[in-house]
Every structure is written in structure tokens, then in C-alpha cells.
């Protein structure tokens, strides 16, 4: 039971960290994708969506290769003195960011695109600079998009399995997340523990998603009329 609790706590830390990192990284990417007119925009958008295509264990395998001592990321982290990322918490964070990136970027991009040109033109006539337009116009108007992105990024990381399985090494408290622990219970035919943990995971996720969606509805109705 202690192991289950350790796995739950680790999963929450991982999902929260990944969501935060992805909102920070995904926002500029989504903003750029929503506003740019360069010819290779389609290519970048496609690359962002690619993690959806590969089976997660296969994606995990390639991350294991690239983060390993013979891979480009592994060479980089070693030369920076960080060591190797597989089998560490931060290795899981980075892998999960790759894996969940489209789930955060897409809603943000849609939200930014949905704002249209008008509010920015109006803001510009009021002498708002580019940063001011982004901070005081784009961010508030895209709030529902941010909430959806956070929900999807968080939920997707909680439910993540294949990638973690491949690069985690199943170390208690470090990389053994709930999904892996759950899988171990099922594989070991310990169905009692599996049911308990699945139930807890579903209940918790329901509560989190339910409260976020409720909050989201209130938030979007309080934004006021769209321009």
C-alpha cells in the first residue's frame, strides 16, 4: 500500500511539473503557430503533432536511444555535466513533455487563432506594444484554451504509460508512476491491488477534471462578450 501511495505522489509531482513546463514552452509555440505566415508553418505544426502517431513504447524506445550515452541528447547532457536522463525524474519530465506537447499546443493554438486580428488592431491603435498586446489581450481571451491545455496535459501525463515504461527503469519513488505500478499489479495477477489503485486513480482524476471543467465554464462565461 505504501508503494501505491509513493507511486501516486510521484505521478502527481510528474504531471504537475510537466503541465507547468508545457504551458511555458507550449504557449510561445502555439502563439507563433497561430500568428505566423511563414511557408514552413505546416511542417512545424506537423512535427508538434507527431508524438500522437508513434506507439508510446516505440516513442519511449527512441527517447531511450537519443537520451542514452550514444544519442545526441545524451551527449549534450553529459557534456553539460548533468549525466544521463533515463531512469531519473527529470528524464521522465522531458520525455513526458515530448509526449504531451500536442495536447497542450493544439488547444492554445486554437484559442489564439479564435481571437482573430481585430482585438490586436484595436489594441495597437491604443498604442499597446507587441508584448502588451500579448499579455493584456491574448492571454485573457485565450484563458479557456489555457485551462483545456492544462487539463489535457495533466491528464495525459497521469495516464502515460509506454514512454515511462521504456525510459523509467521502474525505480520506486523516482520513476515508478501509478500507471506502471498498476500494470505490474495486473501482470502479477494481483488483481485486488490493481482494482484498488485503478479505482483511486479514476476517482481522483474525475474530481480534478470535474472541478477544472466547472471552473472553466465559469471562467469562460466571465470573460464577457467577444469583440
Amino acid at each position: 500500500m505504501d508503494e501505491n501511495l509513493a507511486a501516486i505522489w510521484l505521478t502527481l509531482r510528474l504531471a504537475a511539473t510537466v503541465t507547468l513546463v508545457l504551458l511555458l514552452v507550449g504557449t510561445p509555440i502555439a502563439w507563433w503557430l497561430a500568428r505566423t505566415r511563414v511557408w514552413f508553418k505546416g511542417a512545424i505544426a506537423a512535427i508538434v503533432a507527431l508524438p500522437l502517431v508513434l506507439p508510446p513504447t516505440v516513442l519511449g524506445f527512441y527517447l531511450l536511444l537519443t537520451m542514452g550515452p550514444n544519442g545526441p541528447i545524451g551527449a549534450l547532457t553529459q557534456s553539460l555535466g548533468i549525466g544521463l536522463l533515463p531512469f531519473t525524474f527529470w528524464g521522465l519530465v522531458i520525455a513526458s513533455c515530448f509526449y504531451s506537447l500536442p495536447f497542450v499546443v493544439q488547444p492554445l493554438q486554437n484559442a489564439f487563432e479564435g481571437i482573430g486580428e481585430r482585438p490586436f488592431e484595436v489594441a495597437a491603435t491604443l498604442r499597446a506594444g507587441p508584448w502588451d498586446r500579448f499579455a493584456s489581450v491574448a492571454l485573457p481571451l485565450a484563458k479557456p484554451g489555457f485551462i483545456t491545455a492544462a487539463i489535457l496535459g495533466f491528464a495525459h501525463t497521469v495516464g502515460e504509460f509506454g514512454v515511462v515504461l521504456m525510459i523509467g527503469g521502474n525505480i520506486p519513488g523516482v520513476t515508478r508512476v501509478v500507471s506502471v505500478q498498476l500494470y505490474d499489479h495486473v501482470e502479477a495477477l494481483d488483481y485486488g491491488q490493481a482494482h484498488w489503485l485503478s479505482g483511486a486513480l479514476l476517482l481522483f482524476s474525475f474530481v480534478v477534471l470535474f472541478s477544472l471543467y466547472t471552473f472553466n465554464r465559469r471562467a469562460s462565461s466571465s470573460v464577457g462578450p467577444r469583440v
Binding site: F61, M166, V180
Partner: peptide
């Protein structure tokens, strides 16, 4: 999770 994975950890140099 299984010996395939143990093998992969070694063969990828990790």
C-alpha cells in the same frame, strides 16, 4: 518490465 526491456537498456548503452 521484462527481459526485452532489460536487453534494450543495455543495448542502448543506458
Amino acid at each position: 518490465e521484462n527481459i526485452s526491456q532489460a536487453y534494450q537498456f543495455v543495448t542502448t548503452g543506458n
